[in-house]
Amino acid sequence: MVRQARRMIAVLAGTLAAALSLGSAGAVAAAPKAPPAGVDITGEGLRQPLRLRTETRPDHVVAVIDQVNFLGRTGLSTKPKPADLGPKYTIVVLAGETPKQTYDLYPKAVGGPRIYRPAKQPDSRRISAGWFLGRLNMSETLRTAGVPLERQFDTVSGGVGGGERVLQDDAVNPARDIDEALGELQRLLLLNVAVMLTITFGLAGIALLIRRRTR
């Protein structure tokens, strides 16, 4: 009986060590992601793709990606009329030199900037296609990055998704990444506490049983 109890203690101790290691690994995995490597922009007035890279123009890369990083799963219920869209600019988000995401931006659309997200993405994943309202500072953001658009003085603040400056000082999507990381860390800590309490009570019960058996 004593040997069996000791064996159970060893198993419970091993389970505790494994749970703690999984918690540590999960916390590392939940760390905020690094900004993408760059953005390519093509469209009206650009004879060749406008290539923005974080190594040389990090503020512009962040500002352009900020135009699309708030999109939800579903878009508008109605499609804009083609005649109301104006010039189109396609942005491709890169990881290294590998295209990952693509969006069509319409900064001069009637009624405010528009965004179209294709269902087929460069990384072969498929998502819901849809139209979205864009930020009011889309035109100025693209112009500052190098797209040939007329300057606008009345769109310094953002539109849909909250007011933003044309150029961002923070990393891409920092608030959402940090919130997700903290939420994941909290869940992992609660799981670890639950496992430790279970093992502690189990060890206490086994110790009490051994003590009674050996009297």
Rank of each mutant, 00 (worst) to 15 (best):
M1Y: 14
R3Y: 13
A5L: 10
R6D: 12
A18P: 02
V28Y: 06
P32H: 12
P32L: 15
P32T: 04
A34M: 08
A34C: 01
P36R: 03
A37Y: 04
G38R: 06
G38V: 03
G43Y: 00
Q48K: 13
L50P: 02
R51T: 12
A63S: 15
I65P: 01
I65W: 02
N69K: 04
G72M: 06
G72T: 11
G72A: 12
R73D: 14
L76P: 03
L76A: 11
L76R: 04
K81H: 14
A83S: 13
L85M: 04
Y89C: 07
D104F: 09
P107V: 10
P113I: 02
K120M: 07
Q121Y: 03
Q121N: 03
S124K: 15
S124Q: 14
I127Q: 11
G130M: 01
G134Y: 00
G134I: 13
M138S: 05
S139F: 01
E140P: 05
L142A: 14
R143G: 10
T144F: 06
E150H: 10
R151N: 12
T155S: 04
G162E: 10
V166H: 06
Q168F: 03
V172S: 04
V172W: 09
N173S: 15
P174K: 08
A175M: 06
R176Q: 12
A181E: 07
L191I: 12
L191R: 15
N192V: 14
A194L: 13
M196D: 08
T198E: 08
I199F: 08
T200D: 04
L209Y: 11
I210W: 01
R211H: 08
R215A: 03
